[in-house]
Amino acid sequence: MSAKTDTSTPTDTAIEHETAETLLSLVRRLEHELLAALDADSPQQAVEPLLTSVECLDELDTALAELDSQVTGPLVQRLRLGLDRLACDLHRRGGWQHLDEAQRRTLLARHAKGLTQFDGIGPASAEVLFLHGISDPERLCQSEPDALDDIEGLNAAVLARLKRELEAMRKTRAE
């Protein structure tokens, strides 16, 4: 008769508990900072908790990726999408005005980065779109193709390609 052997050790359990505690702490900190950003009295006051939220999400992403990136990746991506949208909204409402140029450039590069997931959009075009209120690929797909004509700073070739892709998506959805 064979007996099932328990291969776990107290150390394994302690590491799992420690990891869970770390993750819980990061989630609570992220929630606290995000709520502070959302409850801020002005867009300017929301920027600092937004920055801390992003740092917390980066830490959480790293910790979760060590566990199972296939399961946690989509969750982190959705959270990052929300933070990008919040950053875009704060920019549009003047929340970045009090920052120096280097801080604004850092925020812009970080939060416009998600737009580069859309085929044909590089960092420079992503920043132009972000500054005009398009924070992510989902929002870009919701845009009317002709509305892109109002965006100054897009390369003519990029503009034409984006309009073609948006029109093609609309036709596909209509069929």
Rank of each mutant, 00 (worst) to 15 (best):
Ser25Met: 15
Thr9Met: 12
His111Cys: 10
Arg28Ile: 14
Val128Gln: 00
Met169Glu: 13
Met169Pro: 01
Asp146Gly: 06
Ala174Thr: 09
Leu99Ile: 06
Ser25Pro: 00
Ala65Gly: 14
Arg139Asn: 06
Gly120Cys: 10
Gly82Phe: 11
Ser69Cys: 09
Asp39Pro: 04
Glu101Gly: 02
Ser125Asp: 02
Ala156Trp: 07
Pro137Arg: 04
Arg85Val: 02
Gln44Pro: 05
Leu107Tyr: 01
Asp61Phe: 06
Ser143Gly: 04
Ser69Phe: 09
Ala36Arg: 12
Ala124Asp: 06
Thr5Gly: 14
Leu129Ala: 04
Leu162Val: 04
Ala3Ser: 15
Gly73Glu: 14
Glu55Cys: 07
Leu24Glu: 08
Lys113Thr: 08
Leu51Tyr: 05
Glu152Gly: 09
Thr11Phe: 15
Cys56Ser: 13
Gly114Cys: 00
Asp12Ser: 13
Ser25Lys: 12
Arg110Asp: 07
Leu90Lys: 08
Val158Met: 01
Gly73His: 13
Ile15Gly: 01
Asp61Asn: 12
Ser42Gly: 05
Pro145Leu: 08
Asn155Ile: 10
Thr13Ile: 15
Arg161Cys: 03
Arg28Pro: 00
Leu67Asp: 03
Ser2Met: 11
Gly153Glu: 08
Ser143His: 11
Arg105Leu: 04
Cys88Arg: 03
Glu138Gly: 10
Glu18Arg: 15
Leu140His: 09
Glu55Asn: 12
Ile121Ser: 02
Arg92Pro: 00
Thr9Gly: 01
Leu64Phe: 02
Arg92Tyr: 02
Gly73Leu: 06
Asp100Phe: 14
Ala147Leu: 14
Ala160Trp: 02
Glu127Trp: 13
Glu101Asp: 14
Leu83Thr: 11
Lys171Asn: 05
Glu144Cys: 03
Thr52Ala: 12
Ala174Glu: 13
Leu81Ile: 05
Thr116Asn: 04
Arg28Thr: 13
Ile134Leu: 05
Glu21Phe: 03
Ala160Leu: 12
Leu79Lys: 05
His17Glu: 15
Arg164Pro: 00
Ala124Val: 13
Val27Lys: 14
Ser42Gln: 10
Pro43Trp: 00
Cys88Pro: 05
Asp84Asn: 15
Leu79Arg: 08
Asp100Pro: 05
Val158Tyr: 01
Arg93Asp: 14
Ala112Glu: 04
Arg105Tyr: 03
Ala147Arg: 12
Pro49Gly: 00
Ala63Ser: 09
Ala147Tyr: 12
Arg78Trp: 06
Lys4Pro: 06
Pro145Gly: 14
Val27Met: 15
Thr19Ser: 05
Asp89Arg: 04
Glu18Tyr: 09
Ser25Val: 03
Gln77Ser: 13
Glu101Gln: 09
Asp39Leu: 07
Leu83Tyr: 07
Thr19Met: 11
His98Tyr: 08
Lys4Leu: 11
Trp96His: 13
Ser25Thr: 09
Ala20Lys: 15
Leu34Val: 06
Leu90Asp: 02
Val76Phe: 07
